[in-house]
């Protein structure tokens, strides 16, 4: 695979400035979003207060925020690995859908599997679906020279539409009115944690944070992946093959996106249907970058992004501000940080 010509975020920054840049960005974002909120006739300060209370005000709110953060976090951690190797996987949305599709197919075709085997089979199907979908883009690049950004991008909508088709025609619930499958058996639902609404996938996502760190900074493979990211020529000169490692990074990120898809359909949706993603694949890209490609940063960014969505729902109920304000704030936040980075670079 050839090097993609995209140099990532800041590389030539002193650590102190690098830490300061996001803070500056957040300030710019807060200022701009205050204007947007004020435009709908609501006091921005009151709105931010409602946001915080809605996202973190109690155990119910925190639960909701963590649940929403889970798929984003898993996808973003995978992309952190890919982006560290400078592999531009823009196809997490499609990989997420194919992961969900295969896991859902397992649950619907083999409903009588005992619970632990069902979970294992679904997890493997989810990982495998994401891996397969990213492998197609990887092979197209390796063998046919198709730009990875474009290849993964094209596969996004194909994946989304495949889920729609399978849920509407071959696996459709014959007794239902909507173009969706029947509900999964109870064995295909993620086990919950200690009587809360949190499920085992939340725990897994949180566990993946240190694991990603260990992989990238404490294993030979992680060293090689980062070396490839720092420059294929350097990597080759110390005996690392960029092609192979770029493909590995791509496949890890694809598998994790597939896993996120499996987790969402075996908890939130419990069936295959259209619209099983809130744009998580694209959000994951922004979260990984907002987290400055560090696992801890990604965790913070994922929780922040999901808090904005959960807080916006509270804002909608109490002050009638449209829920879409969450996306506006997310986008402005990223824009602010991008601008902050640019200013810090001068």
């Amino acid at each position: 695979m050839t090097a993609d010509p995209s140099p990532l975020a800041p590389t030539s920054l002193s650590p102190r400035l690098k830490a300061l840049a996001p803070a500056l960005g957040v300030l710019i974002a807060l200022f701009l979003s205050s204007i947007v909120i004020a435009l709908s006739g609501v006091n921005p300060l009151e709105a931010y207060q409602t946001f915080m209370a809605g996202a973190f005000g109690g155990s119910r709110q925190i639960t909701e925020t963590l649940l929403k953060a889970t798929p984003i976090l898993i996808i973003a951690l995978g992309l952190t690995i890919a982006f560290q190797a400078r592999v531009w996987n823009i196809g997490a949305e499609g990989q997420y859908h194919i992961g969900a599709l295969l896991a859902g197919t397992v649950a619907l075709v083999q409903p009588d599997l005992p619970a632990p085997i069902m979970m294992l089979a679904m997890v493997l199907a989810g990982l495998g679906g994401g891996l397969l979908w990213s492998l197609i883009a990887g092979l197209l690049q390796l063998k046919r020279g198709v730009n990875l950004i474009i290849g993964t991008l094209m596969l996004n909508y194909i994946g989304i539409l495949l889920v729609q088709y399978v849920a509407r025609v071959p696996l459709r619930d014959p007794n239902g009115f909507l173009p969706e499958t029947a509900r999964f058996a109870a064995t295909a639902q993620l086990p919950r944690l200690f009587g809360t609404r949190l499920h085992i996938g939340v725990l897994l996502a949180l566990l993946l944070v240190p694991l990603t760190y260990l992989l990238l900074w404490r294993t030979p493979l992680g060293f090689r992946l980062r070396a490839v990211g720092n420059g294929p020529t350097v990597a080759r000169s110390v005996g690392i093959w960029p092609h192979r490692h770029r493909l590995i990074a791509l496949l890890i990120s694809g598998s994790l996106a597939g896993l996120a898809g499996m987790i969402e359909i075996s908890y939130t949706y419990l069936r295959l249907r259209p619209n099983i993603s809130d744009g998580y694949g694209f959000t994951g890209i922004l979260v990984a970058l907002l987290g400055q490609l560090s696992p801890i940063g990604t965790l913070i960014a994922a929780v922040l992004f999901s808090a904005l969505v959960v807080g916006a729902q509270a804002l909608n109920v109490t002050l009638q501000v449209p829920v879409a304000v969450a996306g506006v704030l997310q986008a402005l936040l990223v824009l602010g940080v991008l601008a902050g980075n640019a200013i810090a670079k001068r």
Binding site: T283, L286, A324, G327, Q330, A331, L335
Partner: peptide
Amino acid sequence: GITLVLLGQSL
């Protein structure tokens, strides 16, 4: 570009 998509969609 992806930020622009998110901004346009939500705005």
